[in-house]
């Protein structure tokens, strides 16, 4: 895992001017990336008499309390719960399908190329149209659009190809000698999968689970037309943006981002611990 070719720079080694030019560009890019978010986090602590723009009129947590108060924001905690549940389901299905597909795609088989392109094509379909199409389909068959049927399907069109791609990368680095060794030692196919292949791939699989979870958690375009009458958190927030303007929106943003970071951070910490324990580097 630790790049064998990486070496640290000798302090006397001169850096070319391009280094500074590109470093500046990178700095500007990072500012562009994180600046707006940082502004939102800051403004969510706006004083009670402040508005949605600077200046800050004091500092308070009033807007956070506002979320939990009954009233306009009543749906936020419920929508949050729904989003988490949906994301968990999407993530589970994505992992199951993409691990199985990844295993299958390690061998070339008749039609594997076509199947691969078909799976990947849905990544480039316009997202709103995918949702629209699914909604249309449901209407055609007389089914009721719902979060856990039509919206789930719409999100899977997005997370499954992503999971498949990610699993390809994971399997690419997987040394098949491990599996041969397991077979050589008398493990049957199921034992080999359970005791060798899956544990070794676990960090990658967790990465796919995490990716699918976050993709679902903030998915809007595909979900909006097929969610039925129960909103996910992004849909709820979008509805609020068009109807009200108060720093409460910012507070919601801050809170949901915190949740995202907590989930990602916990997973990363777990993966890092796994990898350090294994110290996969062959040269000990």
């Amino acid at each position: 895992m630790i790049g064998g070719g990486a070496r640290s720079r000798d302090p006397r080694e001169k850096r070319p001017w391009t280094f500074y030019a590109l470093a500046t560009l990178m700095g500007v890019f990072l500012l562009f990336l994180y600046g707006p978010m940082f502004v939102i986090y800051l403004l969510s602590f706006q004083g009670p008499n402040g508005g949605v723009t600077f200046p800050m009129v004091g500092v308070s947590t009033v807007w956070f309390e506002d979320i939990l108060k009954p009233g306009q924001m009543a749906n936020i905690p419920v929508a949050f719960g729904r989003s988490i549940l949906l994301a968990a389901i999407v993530s589970t299905i994505t992992v199951l399908v993409s691990v199985a597909a990844g295993l299958g795609f390690r061998r070339r088989f008749r039609g594997s190329g076509i199947l691969f392109y078909l799976a990947v094509a849905s990544l480039v379909m316009p997202s709103l149209l995918v949702g629209f199409g699914i909604g249309l389909g449901f209407q055609l068959f007389g089914w009721k659009a719902d979060l856990f049927s039509s919206a789930l399907a719409a999100q899977l069109t997005w997370t499954l190809p992503f999971g498949l791609f990610a699993m390809f990368a994971v399997f690419n680095r997987f040394n098949r000698a491990y599996e041969e060794a397991a077979t050589d030692l008398g493990a049957n196919a199921w034992q080999r999968l359970r005791w060798v292949t899956l544990p070794i791939l676990l960090p990658g699989i967790l990465g796919v689970a995490m990716g699918a979870f976050t993709l679902s958690y903030d998915e809007y375009a595909r979900t909006t037309l097929v969610a039925g009458n129960r909103n996910t958190l992004p849909l709820e927030i979008y509805a609020l943006i068009s109807s009200s303007t108060s720093p409460t929106l910012f507070a919601i943003g801050t809170l949901t981002t915190t949740v995202s970071f907590l989930v990602i951070g916990a997973t990363l910490a777990f993966v890092f611990r796994l990898q350090r324990r294994r110290a996969l580097a062959r040269h000990g």
Binding site: N175, A177, E180, D184, P199, I200, L274, R278
Partner: peptide, 13 residues
């Protein structure tokens, strides 16, 4: 038979 693999293929976990 038992085989010893070139890179040993010890299970890292």
């Amino acid at each position: 038979t038992a085989m010893m693999f070139q890179s040993y293929a010890l299970f890292p976990h």
